[in-house]
Structure formats: structure tokens, C-alpha cells
Amino acid sequence: MTQPPFRFDLSGGRLCLDFANTVGGMRGVTPKERLAAYPDLVEFARQTGAVNEAQARHLLAEARRRPAEAERAFSDALTLRETLYRTFLARAERRAPAAEDVERLSTALGAALAHRRLERRGDAFALGWDADAGALDAPLWPVVLSAAELLTSDADADRVRVCGLYETHECSWLFVDETRAGTRRWCSMQDCGNKAKARRHHRRTREQRQA
């Protein structure tokens, strides 16, 4: 029986952060890799709307036809992901991102924007992407644009956070805190938030028993 595709958690609030979060757990300690091969990259892009269903099918067919190129595109995707993670972690920690990471993103942005196109939609125009679905790096173009838009929006960039369980080396996910008071601490209340809540309850109960 064919296994259903892995469902990516999209709680980062921006496409670029969701992409950075395709490593679960704690980077460097207990990482859970969610991108094992090029088809996983296409599936992430499909689930997030970075490519549509037809484009996803075409990309997978092209990857089967050009496996070496697909492997290079996948390797570049992982490099981009880690560059994004380092850059936005620096923002979350109120540090300046490394100059080489900013340069890599700038180069990637230039490559992505070369595929930007005007599209006619009814009586209006909109910005879209090159219709050449055979470009194996197409899933990355919207990711890079998302990163550039977030970095250049001071109000949003200042709200980039790292999960509160980063302090205990359990989770390294990033997110944009869009709460009015700016008090969101967890990447997901259902996961890390509940875990932290249960720990606080256990600690209080133990302290009460010892009092």
C-alpha cells in the first residue's frame, strides 16, 4: 500500500520559515530530517502552493528523466534552507546575520527574480513565475522571494522568534509572532506549548508536595 505523503507543519507564518523548519527537533542535537530527496522538496512546494499540482507532476517527471540535475537542485535546496535558518535565527536573537549568508541569499534572489513574469488575469495583471515547469529549482523561487520580503520588512522581521524549547535544546523552529502583544513563545501550542505547560504543571505539583 502506498504511504500518504508526509504532512508538513506550516506554523512558521511565512513560506521561508516553513522551509527552514523542514528539520524537526533540535538542529545539531536531535534533528528530524523531513527532506530526504528531491520528491520531498516537490511535495513541500505542492503543499505550500509554491507549485501547483500540474507543475509538481511535471517536476517529478523531469527529475526522473534528469536524476543528476535533480540531485544538484536538491543539494542546493538544503544549502539554501540552512542559510535561511542561520539568517533568521540571527534575527530572532537580535544579531546581525553573517555577511556570507546575506550574500548567498542575494545571489539566490537574483536567480529567482530572473523567472518573474507578468501574467494576464482577466482584465488585470499580476506577478507570476516562468511557466517553464522543467526548471528543477522552481520550488525554491517563491521561498527566496518570501525570505527577501521578510528581511526587508522591519516590522515583520522584528517579530521573528525561535521556539521557547530552543533554550532546552529540544526544538529549533522559527516563526513570526503575529500576536498583538508579541507574546507567542512556542512554534506550536499543540506540540511544544503543551509540552512546556505539562512540565510547569508537574514542577508546581512536585513543589507543592515538597512544601
Rank of each mutant, 00 (worst) to 15 (best):
A56S: 10
Q208L: 07
R121M: 04
T48L: 04
E62N: 07
L35Q: 07
A90K: 04
A112H: 00
L150V: 13
R206C: 09
G49R: 09
A99P: 14
S106G: 10
H169P: 03
V102W: 00
A68W: 03
D191I: 05
A92N: 11
Q208I: 07
L78S: 08
N21I: 08
T79D: 14
T168N: 13
R116M: 14
A63Y: 02
G24Q: 09
T179E: 10
F125T: 13
T179Q: 04
L41S: 15
A54G: 11
D9W: 00
D132G: 03
P39Q: 15
A20L: 02
V162W: 00
H201V: 15
A98N: 11
R159V: 10
A131Q: 05
D154A: 12
L105H: 05
A181N: 13
E71K: 06
P31T: 07
V51L: 09
D101N: 08
A133T: 12
L113S: 06
D130R: 01
E93G: 04
R27Q: 06
K32E: 07
R14H: 10
F6Y: 12
M189W: 01
L151M: 06
A131S: 14
K197C: 08
T79A: 13
R7P: 04
S172Q: 03
A155R: 13
R86G: 11
G134I: 01
F8G: 06
V23K: 02
R159G: 05
R7A: 10
R121D: 15
L41F: 08
R185T: 12
R91I: 09
A45M: 07
L84I: 15
V160R: 01
E69I: 06
R121H: 11
L60I: 11
V143I: 15
T79I: 11
D132I: 09
D130L: 01
Q55H: 08
E62D: 14
C16P: 01
C16K: 01
D130E: 06
A68P: 09
T2C: 01
T183V: 15
T79K: 01
P39F: 06
R184L: 12
W186N: 03
L15R: 02
T107F: 00
A112I: 08
D76V: 10
K195W: 02
A198Q: 12
L80Q: 05
A20V: 12
T152R: 12
H202E: 05
H201P: 07
A96E: 14
W141L: 01
G28W: 01
E53R: 12
P67C: 09
W173E: 00
G110P: 06
S172E: 04
G182T: 15
R184D: 10
A126L: 14
Y38L: 07
R14N: 10
W186D: 14
T79Q: 05
G193K: 07
V29M: 00
E69S: 08
A20R: 08
R7L: 06
V143E: 07
A131E: 15
T22Q: 02
G24R: 04
L136E: 03
A99T: 13
T87R: 09
H169Y: 03
V102R: 02
T152V: 15
F19S: 12
F19K: 02
D137M: 07
G110E: 14
R104Q: 07
Q210T: 15
R104S: 06
L59V: 11
D154G: 14
E178G: 14
C192W: 00
F8I: 02
N194K: 05
A98H: 12
D9H: 03
A70T: 13
R95N: 06
R34W: 10
